[in-house]
Each structure stands twice: as C-alpha cells, then as structure tokens.
Amino acid sequence: MTSNGKPKFAMYWAASCGGCEISVLNIHEKILDVDANFDVVFWPVAMDAKYKDVEAMEDGSILLTLFNGAIRNEENEHIAKLLRKKSQILVAFGSCANEGCMPALANLSPIDEIVKTAFSTISTDNPNHIQPQTSYQAPEGELKIPKLFPIVRTLDQVVDVDYYMPGCPPESHQIAAVIDLVIQVLQGKAELPPKGSVIGAGPSTVCDECTRKRGLKTIHEFKRIQHVQIDPEICLLEQGILCSGPATRSGCKALCPSANSPCIGCYGPAEGVLDYGARLLTAVASVIDSNDPNEIQHIIEGIPDPVGMFYRFNLAGSLLRASKPAWDTK
C-alpha cells in the first residue's frame, strides 16, 4: 500500500508491439476506474517512471502487474524477473507473453540469420557487413545494447506466472471485466480464481461463438482466401479456407469470422489443449474428403506453410518451441 492508500498497478511491455497497451487504453472511461482504485507506479507508454524507480520498490509491493510481450533479449528477461519480484500478482497479458505470438515465428530461423537478413536488405547500405554489437567502443566510451537470445520465450518459460490473459490483443471488454473483478476483490466482494487460471476469456472454442452454418461438409481442396468468393453464412473451413476457430479459445465473440475473415487463433489454445498446432491440425485434417494416400498428399499441398498456419501465435508456447536449425547451434 502506498501513502495514498491505493494498491499499486504496473504494466510493462517486453518484446511486444504495443497493441496490448492500446487495448488497455481502449477501455476508455474505465481507465478512470483504474486511476480511482490504483496507484499506477510503472507504465512506460503512459507515464514517466523509470526502471530505477521499480528497482527501488519493496519486493511484493506492486499488487498487480500486467506483463505483455515475449522474452527476446536479456533486457526483457531482466525486467520480467524484476517485476516478478516486485509484484504479488503477475499476469501474462496478451498472446506475446502467453505463447510468443507472431514474432515467435522467428523461432524457425537461427538468430544470426535473422540479424543478417535485417542488415542486408535491398535498401540497406552496408558494404562492410556491419552488425550491431552488444558492446561497442565509441570514441567517448562503451555503448551497450542487450544480447538477443537464440529463441523467443514465453513469460512463464522465464518466471512464475499467476494468471494468463490471452488475445492479440485481449479484447477491451475482457480487460474491463478483469479490472472490474480485481476491484471487487479489493472491496472484498469477490474472490480471485485459482492461481494458474486463464482469465478474461471463455471456456470453449471460437467455433462455439461463431454464428456461421456448419454442415458435415468435407472438402477436396484448401483454398487461399484471395481466390474464394466468400459465402457470408457458411463455415469458412467448409469453404476450404483455413480457419483456426476449432482450436482457439473463445472470448472474442468470433470477431474475425463475423468479418468474413478466418479466425487466425489469437486467443491461443482452447481449454485442455496441450499443443495448439496439433489440435488445429487434427481439426483441419478431418475435413479432408479422401481415403487415398496420393490424393490426400495432393490436397495437403494446398497448405504450403503448415507451421505458419497452425502455429501463427503459438510457436514459442508449443511442445517443440523452435525449429531445429534455430536452436541447434552445433
């Protein structure tokens, strides 16, 4: 508790895009409830407290920290550990912190290849093949930048996490509901769910929230969305468009399929799913209408990039986590 008596709140981004933060701002008026009930002590996008201020805080003095972003470099890891120590409740907030999100597709390539690509693109003027150095001796002194780890990790692969809040980003109505809950807990009117729970999301799948019509239809061909005249009423998967609804946790009200666009899986694995990609693969394989090995393999050619389609958000959090060339440095 601080001098003004309010519990402390922090929000931090590690390897993230900032969308999670914007989604918090998008709770609009509710942000005033946050202000009324919490003392916001650290939130780099919105206010001026620095790392040093956090270091000076007592351990466990922050009641609630929403941590978004994955662990890509030493700095991300350092702050994750620091905030873990200072926080009573640490929430993995958003897909990046939960499962790595799209930037974890970097786990398909060795890190030096990633750096090399960035510094040798067609518009890069780099005849001497300069690459950033974690320690560089400038004329005036040493300059340091954090070391990149070979693979992207999720928050709970680095520190202990109390709650998981999925979504890329979590939808604002879900954030508002979670904030309400925490405020009620503070007022003694509600109890926190068991540690390790997924909060701010539903218990079933996006398909369950989706209003599109499903038959038992099977397909002979997977199609790319740009080539399909999309039927606005029928299940997209049954139209041959890869939709991640069957494996994805509910909670967004099937936003994307309602916009004629497939679910891409941002709410992560549905309840009880150990490996997101395996579940989605199972669902997708089951609509293939063929018993002939050659024909099956031909139909599968319609999915040229299975990892990209089945682990778009989830690679870092999957069972395999990274491709062999990415981690096998020998």
């Binding site: 398909l108 990609g277 395996a278 693969l281 199972t282 997708v284 394989a285 089951s286 293939i288 063929s290 018993n291 090995p293 099956i296 393999q297 599968i300 999915i303 990039d305 299975p306 990892v307 089945f310 395999l320 491709s323 062999k324 060339p325 990415a326 096998d328």
Partner: peptide, 23 residues
C-alpha cells in the same frame, strides 16, 4: 471402420509440419 483414414490424413499433414521444424 474409418478411423485409420483419419490417422492417414493427420499423418501426412504432421509429417509436412515436422519437416518444416527441421525434423
């Protein structure tokens, strides 16, 4: 009845995915 056809469909798709993972 039909279950092993499902196995077959999953198998080929999974094998393709594993190849991409460097297996």
């Amino acid at each position: 009845v039909e279950q092993n056809y499902k196995t077959m469909r999953r198998f080929y798709l999974l094998r393709k995915l594993l190849t991409q993972m460097g297996i």
